[in-house]
Write a protein that binds this DNA or RNA. Sequence first.
DNA 1: CGCATCGATGGGAGCGCTCCCATTTCAGCG
DNA 2: CGCTGAAATGGGAGCGCTCCCATCGATGCG
Lengths: 370, 370
Amino acid sequence: MPAARADGAGKSGPTLEQVAARAGVGRGTASRVINGSPRVSERTRSAVQAAVAELGYVPNRAARALAAGSMDAVALVVPEQENRLFAEPYFSEILRGVSAELGDTDMQLLLTLIRDQRGRERFAQYAAAHRVDGVLLVSVHGDDPLPDLLREVGMPAVLGGRRSHAEQLPYVDSDNLLGAQLAVEHLLGRGRRKVATVTGPPDIYGARCRLAGYHAALRAAGLESAPPDADDGGFPADGPLVVQGDFTEEGGHRAMRELLARDPEVDAVFCASDVMAAGARLALREAGRKVPEDVALVGFDDSAVARHMDPPLTTVRQPIEEMGRAMVRMLLDLMARAREDPPRTPSGTAGAEQQPRLVLPTELVRRSSS
Amino acid sequence: MPAARADGAGKSGPTLEQVAARAGVGRGTASRVINGSPRVSERTRSAVQAAVAELGYVPNRAARALAAGSMDAVALVVPEQENRLFAEPYFSEILRGVSAELGDTDMQLLLTLIRDQRGRERFAQYAAAHRVDGVLLVSVHGDDPLPDLLREVGMPAVLGGRRSHAEQLPYVDSDNLLGAQLAVEHLLGRGRRKVATVTGPPDIYGARCRLAGYHAALRAAGLESAPPDADDGGFPADGPLVVQGDFTEEGGHRAMRELLARDPEVDAVFCASDVMAAGARLALREAGRKVPEDVALVGFDDSAVARHMDPPLTTVRQPIEEMGRAMVRMLLDLMARAREDPPRTPSGTAGAEQQPRLVLPTELVRRSSS
DNA sequence: CGCATCGATGGGAGCGCTCCCATTTCAGCG
DNA sequence: CGCTGAAATGGGAGCGCTCCCATCGATGCG
């Protein structure tokens, strides 16, 4: 005699039906209580809640997703570039923020590391098939097609960091320009006069902003003539005191040597990332320059390396965790909106709608390298 | 006139039914092809595959999960302790490994950061309700109830790091003992004679192993008498040259000062983590001791700080990414087994079954701090 | 006091898929 | 040439839930 049911295996707990029965109400009513519908009497509500507690009921996500057509899940997509330029604290912090903010909802966090083209396509298809309700994109390159693709299939998405000044998608970014400006002003305020900079890759918008901030500070101090335009582009990406790095330590090292060769009088360097500052610091040591006596050094990111460098590195801190939280809030908002609105074809409203955007402040962290 | 279908919204692509129709077969057959069942003729198979390609069909996970009773998802659970002792490279590396290995299956990765008791209960309930097919637990404390709870509800789980020498659950760990032993032997080989150690919290098994390795090396060199027992406990957690740290930089700093106070002759220190080594390095600098001339320093983990310390820190590297991969492989294996076997009540087979376990080798990374 | 209203409730109809049983087909065999 | 069994296939029965419509009262008003 086969057991009534080969239970114990993958079977889960009680069903809504059972909860309803136990509470002496109908399935629909029980569902209403569980989903917080207001159209339920107080008596009924508590009866159902009691039944839920007694039975230890946990709604079946798959069933809910299938019936409701939403997945109650958002994906955090992280492109995992070869050079893993994007690592260290940034990722953990974002995750912390995202997770914290998501913890209040009962939304799932799906993590997707995209390693290669194949992975990208796979995810694109996955998203196009609406297997998640929203997407958080972090560390997106200027030429990444994924964001627009998501937009086309009507999948709510929020970027962490813009791809350009006129980013079309909703985003949360930090004020890279002002942060860089603060850093350079700080250097200038310390009496430094030959302030150089090691930039990041020019195809990353944030890196361009940091360079723009550098120029802005110099200009404000009257050390450089007015530039073509505002906060983007328009600046010489190169020049006697501007050397391009690539966000790696090795790149910082190389750039610093180049700088020293170009002008031995350099007395301060603003590096667009802490990691590059570490490389620069090495080059300075090799050249017998003391930090900060001979050359003051400032980084960007306030990553772990900054605290552990010798001397500890002055740097610019971004509210990364808060960025994560803000991204989630923004995404949840978009998702709610998408649920209500009839998301007509992209070209519908002629794209006149204003996408939400948020730029968080950065702050200078003074340590002894400057 | 409303479009035949207010499409573009949350609706996903074609259904199995449509694929089947297109291929001119029945739903069951189409399903069989998609799930790789062998009981399908070659002709039919290719017909269905063509239809899938043409329609861009992507199976609906929710429906599949509901019908099949499995979720095609595993959770990676990360306790997020206050002190975030567990951060930096470890987490990213584990994630990289997990993600890479999971990328080959079409299993989803659900990330769960557990912040507090409430979060723990929430996840426990979630798992008990079988909302995932397997769980990866990382950085588990000795007294964490979660693992046993998972075991009770028959949820396949793999630990990253044991809780004790006789861990009952499947686990992947690294050879902490041998790594520590290598480190200390290295110090001894460099002619150091007063080798001290800064330990981690004693309630973490890995930390105890590192201490045991320290003792083992000293003993092998005849610098310490034979201890009570093998590779676990049995050693004095304290002693003239053994000071307890807590895996934090501040703790390492404090411990090093204590060490210097106890015995100014100390000429080498093995710290059970790089971060503590950073703290120790600071204390040494404050005390005017040079590294490595006066005191040689070795850490553990090969985290980012190690490379950026001055001088760069000799340390012990664990194959963390590989641990992540191994955990996934082990978990998938357990899941497959659970699917076949009738997972009877825990007490069933008297727990005589051998749980899979794996201990990966560690390696010494020599830098200039020793 | 009867009828229109509105809130509260019960429960049918699927959501898209897997499982599994019934059916069909066909080769092999006595 | 009819019979048996294996292989291939079709399609019903749900999985547990949300949606939505029909129902049932109770309330308010003419």
